[in-house]
Amino acid sequence: MSFEYSVTYYAENNYENPVENAYWQFLIVPENNDTQELISVEIKNSLEAKSGFSQNGFGFQTIRINTSERFQKINFSATFKLKKISFNPFGQIPIFDIPSNYELVKSLNFKVDHEPYLRETKYTALPAGSENLFVFDTSISIFDNLQKLNKWVYLFIHFNTGVTHVNTLLEEIINNPEGVCQDFTHLFCALSKKNNIPTRYVSGYLHQGNGYFGDSQMHAWAEAYIPQVGWIGFDPTNNLLVNDNHIKVAHGKDYNDCSPLKGVVYSQGANKTSHFVEVQAEQ
């Protein structure tokens, strides 16, 4: 069975002073993978500036826009139609060989192969003293531990918008556990990595028809690498395993690798960006 979704991303950029020349890179296109298939993309912008597709350094598709006309404001929108293949996240979970799984994640070859997603990064660095906030119980499987961690993060942080921002570090979250999906995800990644599990940050869209937290912005969740299975998605903001409602765009080490909009603007002074997202199911 499959669902069709229509996702629209809007952004508006306002600049204090006129801009002479600008480049933007949007990392917002849903990826094609086993569970989702992109059908169409429609891009518009108020300046009718040239746009094109490219990719970022990690191979995810980007939209590039460039203009050398003077302007102070640009509106941008992109609409994606895609098909999501229905799947049961528990369907792929086998019977784990628990001791050998823990053995494997401690082996050198495993650590070398997954180095990027075991490395501590700026946004997944735990403050001193909090490294052991969540320690795995090695009598149960890695998958079970991660589910527990998912719930633990969900309960630890109180979902609240406007408290944190894109540059918030975990130190702040641990001192004052309030935040949004990005903060939930960073904390999940940090603690999972501390337990030797390769974990990556995922950005994407969430269909909120079921009353999930997502705040009409892009959503974030985590993927952890589990021996015998591979990468499995965890959504700690909603204490869920990733399912048909999650539409993936990109992954990386942390938010920094996945930020939806990067701009190079030749102008002085402040700028204001606002964006929002609409996800509609079309059965």
């Binding site: 480049y23 890179q25 490219s54 990719q55 970022n56 350094g57 191979g59 980007t62 590039r64 460039n66 990067k262 701009g263 190079v264």
Partner: peptide
């Protein structure tokens, strides 16, 4: 490449890295 590395770099070329890896 300010789109891939330091965004405040005015010395680079936006999009250069993607051209390189392609």
């Amino acid at each position: 490449d300010p789109l891939e590395f330091r965004a405040d770099s005015s010395l680079g070329v936006p999009g250069l890295f993607a051209a390189y890896i392609k």
